[in-house]
């Protein structure tokens, strides 16, 4: 039975890597959207939220247009860095990260917007620089929203099907994540394998949800 768990393990690795990527790009993006004013901000916010409303296959298709081996970005990546994303595990990470990104960005932006900027000013007046203000005031006051967003993004990345399939394909033990493997198992009539994987993915997702519910309502902090 445990040899069945390969795709599940791959899914966990892909979703974890995607979540890290989402956090690295998403925290600064959410902060900028919450705190800065610049021309085209609405457009930028719209584009970043687009994966939420586009069909996952369309997200995958657009990614292919950018990073495929014949696309400009994909060719540059291959020639300059020797990196090929398509039909590779890193492609699965990228695809699920892009699909999951808005699920982090929206609550994270809201969490940063809920932090009273006057508290940040008070911290600056008390001698703190920007990095220190962020670490000592903004982050601690916003972390519940950020954590919720990360869990949502993780769950979304874990379950991604369409975008991953388009970008990384469905290559067993290389890019075949649990979602893809469940599809394959059902197609080939292997119902035991399908059920095992479905149970595994569901267990992880439910655990993530439980984490959110345990963490978030907890001790309320007065804003």
């Amino acid at each position: 039975m445990f040899d069945d768990l390969g795709p599940l393990w791959l899914s966990l690795k892909v979703a974890t890597a995607a979540t890290v990527g989402v956090a690295v790009v998403g925290v600064p993006a959410a902060l900028v959207l919450a705190r800065s004013r610049f021309p085209g901000k609405g457009l930028a916010a719209g584009i970043l939220a687009l994966p939420l409303v586009l069909p996952p296959t369309v997200v995958g298709y657009l990614l292919l247009q950018a990073i495929g081996r014949r696309a400009w970005l994909g060719r540059w990546l291959e020639e300059a860095l020797g990196v090929v994303l398509v039909f590779h595990g890193s492609g699965a990470v990228l695809a699920s990260a892009v699909a999951a990104f808005p699920l982090f960005l929206l609550p994270a932006r809201g969490a940063f917007e809920a932090v009273d900027p006057r508290l940040e000013d008070a911290a600056r007046l008390l001698g703190r620089g920007e990095a220190s203000v962020f670490l000592a005031v903004t982050l601690p006051l916003a972390w519940r929203g950020l954590a919720a967003g990360l869990v949502l993004a993780f769950a979304r990345a874990l379950g991604d099907f369409g975008a991953t399939m388009m970008v990384a394909g469905n290559i067993p033990s290389l890019t075949q994540t649990a979602s893809l493997a469940i599809y394959d198992a059902v197609q080939s009539g292997d119902s035991r394998r399908a059920a095992t994987l479905a149970l595994g993915v569901s267990a992880i997702s439910v655990a993530a949800l439980a984490f959110v519910q345990r963490t978030l309502p907890g001790r309320e902090v007065r804003p």
Binding site: D121, A122, R124, L125, L126, G127, R128, G129
Partner: peptide
């Protein structure tokens, strides 16, 4: 602000 040494 951080170098002004003004309390408020």
């Amino acid at each position: 602000l951080r170098r002004r040494r003004i309390g408020m």
